[in-house]
Design a binder for these strands. Structure first.
Lengths: 207, 207
DNA sequence: ATTATGTCTAACAATATTGTTAGCGCAAAT
DNA sequence: ATTTGCGCTAACAATATTGTTAGACATAAT
């Protein structure tokens, strides 16, 4: 049994493909580059994964599952106060993005350049987002009725949160040039944005 | 003289290339598709523009010039009050994005997948952004000294503004799925975001 | 009329990229 | 020992993609 070696090469190709697909997208990725990076023959690529599309589907499915878990966990306990839910969402979302900085740009690029190939992502979004937003709207309305916050549109609030969290990482090279390497220290930038975005959103909610 | 016809085919190729490059990026774009869309022979592509890279350079230069003008104009009069400058920046920036919704994703994708080929964009950014941010910081500090606003970091404020303005358009297909076609009516979405983002930023500045 | 110029077509060439296949070698199973 | 299964290599095949070139054709200049 050479099972160990099998898993090694398969895993090596998977890791190489993940990097290649995430950084260059489906059309930009080259199967030869993937094989080369993995340190295996070009034919091994097809031996393990048949076609470029099949491997792409596998990678994108993994990434969608990862994102789905992160989103579900990020909400935390929906029984917490509104401010706690928002803090949880912002913190967990930002940490997920910082850990997977290429993912947002990759997904956005793919759904635009070939909606059909990444339809599974939009499906997931369609299933998860509206329910969460409805719950969030309930929470907002409830606190607003008690005069604790303004009655804002949950959809716009979510758009604001995601925009504030994601954009800097999506456009990191440009942001660093425009704002003098403000993201150079990844850890402190992350903590800064956590505080900053929470503050921005809470001020928006203040009556 | 067939000068009219010349300009026609040249312009047709340019328009087709613009669309192809902006929607698929440099690697995703196919010169055959461009020629086909333009309704001309494939050889005409090379007759007028030699290579794919040369045409790409021309398109991206045009787009950078367009963006540069928009940025410079968007600032408006730097002698206006802080709130007026911010309103101008947000309104003009949003209108520019709404008129060129593909541009942000295109530029972000290119600088990531091939920084060298789109270095001119980062150069422009490097020349323009820091100066404007320094002026904005002066303005903030000045009003803060009079107790009219909080002393916030101009860099983070700009990041917030650009994030809130750009993200929805960059990720439009996903946003529409998650937020139930909230961008379907482009005109009203644009006006809503103008008001919403101005309000969000001004609340952040409130003492 | 002839020449010159620039647009355009059709065919070709070169390379890149994806995908396939015959067969080698090694380890386990019988 | 033989067979079987599986990872693997090397060479090939097929198509896609970019780029080139010889020459046709029309128009303008001489």
């Amino acid at each position: 049994m050479v099972k160990q070696q099998d898993k090694d090469t398969e895993a090596k190709i998977l890791r190489a493909a993940e990097h290649e697909f995430l950084s260059k997208g489906f059309v930009g990725a080259r199967t030869t580059s993937i094989a080369e990076t993995a340190g295996v023959t070009h034919a091994m690529f097809h031996y393990y994964f048949r076609t470029k599309e099949k491997l792409f589907d596998r990678i994108i499915s993994e990434k969608i599952a990862l994102l789905k878990n992160a989103v579900i966990e990020s909400v935390g306990d929906m029984n917490d106060s509104l401010s706690e839910v928002i803090r949880n969402v912002i913190n967990n979302h930002l940490e997920f993005i910082a850990a997977n900085p290429d993912l947002p740009r990759f997904l956005v690029g793919e759904i635009f350049s070939n909606p059909g190939r990444s339809a599974t992502f939009l499906d997931s979004l369609h299933r998860i987002a509206p329910t969460f937003i409805a719950e969030l709207q309930d929470k907002i309305d409830c606190e607003a009725a008690k005069g604790l916050c303004r009655r804002v549109d949950a959809k716009m609030l979510m758009l604001d949160i995601v925009s504030l969290n994601v954009f800097a990482y999506m456009a990191a090279p440009a942001v660093n040039v425009a704002l003098c390497d403000c993201m150079a220290d990844a850890e402190s930038f992350l903590e800064m944005r956590k505080a900053e975005n929470y503050d921005t959103i809470m001020r928006k909610l203040k009556p």
